[in-house]
Design a protein around this nucleic acid. Sequence first.
DNA 1: CGTTGTCTATCTTGTGATAGGTAGATACGT
DNA 2: ACGTATCTACCTATCACAAGATAGACAACG
Lengths: 177, 177
Amino acid sequence: MTTARETEIMDFAEREMRKGGLDAFSFRDVAAAIGIKSASVHYHFPTKADLVQRVITRYADRFVGSLGAADAADETPHDRVARLADAYTGAYRQEGCSCLCTVLGSVVTYIPDGSPDKVRDFYNRLSQWLTTALEGKSTDLTPELVISILQGAMTLSVAVDRDAPIMDAKRYLLSVL
Amino acid sequence: MTTARETEIMDFAEREMRKGGLDAFSFRDVAAAIGIKSASVHYHFPTKADLVQRVITRYADRFVGSLGAADAADETPHDRVARLADAYTGAYRQEGCSCLCTVLGSVVTYIPDGSPDKVRDFYNRLSQWLTTALEGKSTDLTPELVISILQGAMTLSVAVDRDAPIMDAKRYLLSVL
DNA sequence: CGTTGTCTATCTTGTGATAGGTAGATACGT
DNA sequence: ACGTATCTACCTATCACAAGATAGACAACG
């Protein structure tokens, strides 16, 4: 069960984590943002590790879920990759921030407790989706390379504050797949 | 002028930043690692922002410098990209950690003072090198996409703790360039 | 009455940063 | 050569603050 309050907390935490990583927010920040006290945040999420793990898991569910079926018969691999690319470009355009797991992935050895496993789960699920999505398509690109291109371009776009890299990545993928 | 002590400090700071970002180390960590007191670290680098900026600049100089000439007449674009890819795979194999600016790039809006500009300088210099390096080569890949692929794969390799993504990225780039 | 969600108040730890002092080296004027 | 001044690189001690976390009380609801 996830209450409305917990959703509020996770929404804020996710937004901050995607912009600045684990240390970009504190329990006090969360509390101030939604109008309660930090002790109350601890009531819903005993430790920060708990909060981070739940945010990652929710993110993974939502992201992979939003991609839809990877094996719909009336679609081509091209269609499916287009949807994946749109998920990335959309996130950049609307929120100006990265994939949560890209931010956390590069510092995976420094995040607490079970979080690294949650990040790896995300990538495993995404790889699996792409493996199915590309089935039957002959290409030099592995599923993980498709992910790499999109995420690398996303990071670069954020870093240089221009959408060219992520838009070029999408265009390139759609031209070769 | 950079003294031996400052080099020691920056070496440690860079190593930690590449593994865990800005908040992965403190002045006390630095001091303990090299056997002095934190106040002495402040003597060499008045603020953390100072230290971070110098580390990024030094990293950029070293990384781009290590790539060598982008316009040597006896080389092909393929040769040059191979060298760039080796810089990434080498970093992963030897240090198991990412490009410094990949780690910082995704959180660029949360790092202090002049640091974002230093990160962007790095990418500008790398793009410029690649633009020259690819001159005359007909390809759909932009210089920034080449960077994206390598860095995205690097991040993924770190995240999932397998070298497959970064090795595949190198292989792919050399097959299409 | 028990549960739920919040509060106040507080603890401990770790952080970046500063003030002020000290030993040793170097430079300079007489 | 001698005394003075300055500089370098470190030290001790401490500050103010923000972090995660906990204990215990309170009100509302069933």
